[in-house]
Amino acid sequence: MFEPEWLVEAKKYMGEKEIKGTQHNPLILQFWKDIRRGGIKDDETPWCAAFVGAILERCGIPSSRYESARSYLQWGRELKEPGLGCVVVLLREGGGHVGFVVGTSSNGDLMVLGGNQSDAVNIRSFPRSRVSGYRWPANISREPQSLPALIAQRSESES
């Protein structure tokens, strides 16, 4: 199965998490720099868009270069259905969330690899009712593959 290079890159950071207190994870601060938002100097600022953007940039794909998850609704090209590795923008109270779709759970929820999911990089389950949009890099001509079934690790009502 073809796995987009940005998913391979994103998986390298599984388990990275915020540092509680006055210290900050230098990798999360680097994510901000990678999307040209180096003025953000903490790991408490919601960083899901910084994670997605940094991963794309590290693979030579221009990101939205913005700190808002919803900025990805204008990025790349729209997909009607999710595909392996697509960017998904999700609704949440007070804002949005963004990550990479890696599969579906047994109940049909989306499995999303993302940053700032319970303050860490991990894979979590999200209901499709929260989806605002699916996006694919504009400069990648290969279409995404269909989603594999994965075992749900935990449903996220908030991220």
Rank of each mutant, 00 (worst) to 15 (best):
E3V: 13
P4S: 11
P4A: 09
P4H: 13
W6F: 07
W6G: 04
K12M: 10
K12F: 08
Y13I: 01
G15H: 02
G15L: 10
K17W: 00
K17L: 03
K17P: 02
K20W: 12
G21C: 01
L29Y: 01
L29G: 04
Q30Y: 08
F31Q: 08
W32A: 05
K33H: 13
I35C: 11
E44H: 14
T45G: 05
W47M: 06
A50H: 02
F51I: 13
V52W: 00
G53M: 09
A54Y: 07
G60E: 05
S64F: 01
S68A: 14
R70L: 12
Q74V: 10
Q74Y: 13
W75Y: 04
W75M: 05
W75I: 08
R77W: 04
K80W: 08
G83C: 08
G83K: 11
G85L: 04
V89R: 00
L90R: 00
L91I: 09
R92Q: 10
E93F: 06
G94M: 01
G94N: 02
G96W: 08
H97V: 08
G99D: 04
V101Y: 05
T104L: 15
S105H: 05
N107I: 12
M111E: 15
M111L: 13
M111V: 11
G114H: 02
G115C: 03
G115D: 03
Q117V: 04
Q117I: 11
I123K: 10
F126H: 09
F126G: 00
F126Q: 03
S129I: 11
R130N: 07
S132Y: 12
W136K: 07
W136M: 04
W136F: 04
W136E: 06
A138N: 09
A138E: 11
I140E: 06
S141R: 14
E143H: 14
P144Q: 06
P148T: 04
P148M: 01
P148V: 04
I151A: 14
I151L: 12
I151P: 02
Q153C: 09
E156I: 14
S157E: 14
E158Y: 14
S159C: 10
